[in-house]
Amino acid sequence: MKKLINSKERMPDDMIDGFVAAYPGIVARGQNPRVVCRAHPKDRDAKVTLLIGNGCGHEPIAMGFVGSGLLDANVVGDVFAAPSPDLILEGIREVTGKAGAVLLISRHEGDVINGNAAAMMAEDENLSVQPLLMYDDISSAPKGSEDERRGAAGTIFVYKILGAAAETGMRLDDLVTLGEDVRSRTRTLAAAVAPGISPLTGAPMFSLPDDEIYIGMGVHGEPGVGRRKVGPVRDLVAFMLSELLEDRPIAPNTPTVVLVNGSGGTTQMELLTVFNEVAQGLEKLNIPRVSPMIGSFSTTQEMAGFSISLLTPTPQMLDLWQAPQSTPNFPAIHKGTRA
């Protein structure tokens, strides 16, 4: 395995050093070197802060989304390991003012355990912090058990919409309600093509025969989700789209935001091909699409694959999704609609 690193131990810190050196007008290190925050924070007694802790190795998420109109801070754990509750608490302390904070938690074991523990510790210090669990991956738990699902790329909708809403001065409770509403309108399904290499062990993170694709994360007992042979991407996307729409049907003429996320080792050429198939599939159903996002934003090293996320936004959510932001890595969202 070839990885461009100095040492396993230094990976996260070397990366953060590079990040803050590259974007000094937008982001800065907090007092704790694993806290990345805005270089020019707003008045924290007036604006609710939005932060998340997560293991690194998935860049540009979440560090790359720190900046005006989006996150106030990201607490960076080790590679693929949620930061400790103690570290998340330090991040909360650094950015939380009288307006309070939303602690986003993408639903993965370590993130949930350590995030909830940190929020409890923050409450003990009289900081006003509300944790918000994010989950959207339909393959990780069946319909009816939505709150047992994992957070996947569709969590990006929650980041962006809450980030823009907080910027307009929305209050803490309203932000949490809005975030829950975005979550309930979001669904994601992923397909893996080839494993990423863990920089910790140097080994592939799963195995998959050359001619197979893996849909979802392989939870058993869910018909239709699992391995399938590589074929034309059209068939693969049609299958994934039908799974998504079966889980959460979308009525004709409902504006829908499509996010096609690459997992690190899949080219933009392939992602645009996937998007084209999604677009055609939605067109057949008379589902108009608005303001898509296409690229590799939530990655797992050089893992090849992609996910499709669908959001049916309210008009308010759509405005917030399209609102300008200034972060190192979040792309501009274009308004263009096409029925």
């Binding site: 293991g55 754990g77 080790d78 693929f80 390991a81 949620a82 930061p83 400790s84 509750p85 103690d86 570290l87 074991e109 370590g110 355990i113 350590n114 523990a117």
Partner: peptide, 15 residues
């Protein structure tokens, strides 16, 4: 306890 939790991180650190 705190030293272990902070250094290990992840779910395993806390648990």
């Amino acid at each position: 306890v705190v030293a272990f939790r902070k250094a290990a991180g992840g779910a395993s650190g806390s648990l």
